[in-house]
């Protein structure tokens, strides 16, 4: 599995297809996070943007390998593990980007209202929740569940939007808890949302991997 992750990571990095989502997200963060803003607000804003970013990166990773190369890797390691490696690479990319954005928010924003430690913990958890939710959206809107590129992009965009506005979504729950925490000055630790996001990502990831074994 480590070898597959390293291979997928190399493909993602060297393909440079990560640049577009990364630049879009950097612009989103740069526009929304100002020095002196309340830190919890900014962390919530950065994490919310992570949902479409994660979906985008996961979609890139599952389509990065041409079919013939994927078949060779699938014969060597099994199609389930090949697909899982692609999903995990996308998730790792989203987590890394989210960590950078959260670190920037913690550095430049106003931490007076909340303790820096509490803000960092809450920010880290919300980042993880949003990356997991976005990856779940990406897993559902990419190959092998959605094969057509156009439908896939549409599904990823719509799915990300729904993940941010629908009440049961862990990403929405965690972000709104953080933002309302900014009003009251208390950083809430979104453990329920984390558990839901983990379960959601695991379920959608498993479904996509099993479908990959069934029909490439």
């Amino acid at each position: 599995m480590t070898a597959l992750l390293r291979y997928q990571g190399a493909l993602l990095l060297r393909s440079q297809r990560w640049l577009a989502p990364f630049v879009a997200y950097a612009a989103f963060v740069a526009v929304g996070i100002r020095p002196g803003d309340p830190v919890l607000d900014s962390l919530g804003y950065a994490a919310a943007g992570l949902v479409p970013l994660a979906a985008w990166l996961v979609r890139i990773c599952v389509t990065n390998e041409p079919g013939a190369a994927r078949d060779c890797a699938a014969a060597a390691a099994g199609p389930v593990r090949v697909h899982a490696a692609a999903l995990l690479t996308g998730l790792a990319g989203a987590l890394l980007t989210g960590a950078l954005a959260a670190a920037a928010a913690l550095l430049v924003c106003d931490r007076a209202a909340t303790g820096p430690g509490a803000a960092a913990v809450a920010g880290a958890l919300v980042t993880v929740v949003c990356a997991l939710t976005g990856s779940a959206v990406g897993a559902l809107s990419g190959r092998p569940l959605v094969r057509r590129r156009g439908y896939g992009i549409l599904a990823a965009a719509l799915g990300s939007l729904l993940a941010l506005v629908l009440a049961p979504s862990p990403a929405r729950g965690a972000v709104s808890a953080l933002v309302s925490g900014a009003r009251s000055g208390t950083a809430e630790v979104p453990l329920t949302a984390l558990a839901v996001a983990l379960a959601l990502a695991a379920a959608t990831g498993t479904a996509a991997c099993l479908a990959a074994a069934r029909r490439g």
């Binding site: 493909l11 078949d71 060779c72 014969a75 060597a76």
Partner: peptide, 16 residues
């Protein structure tokens, strides 16, 4: 455990 496959066509545009 060690299985390998060669596809019929392998014109693969990988960035490696």
């Amino acid at each position: 455990p060690r299985t390998a496959y060669v596809p019929e066509r392998f014109p693969v545009a990988l960035p490696l």
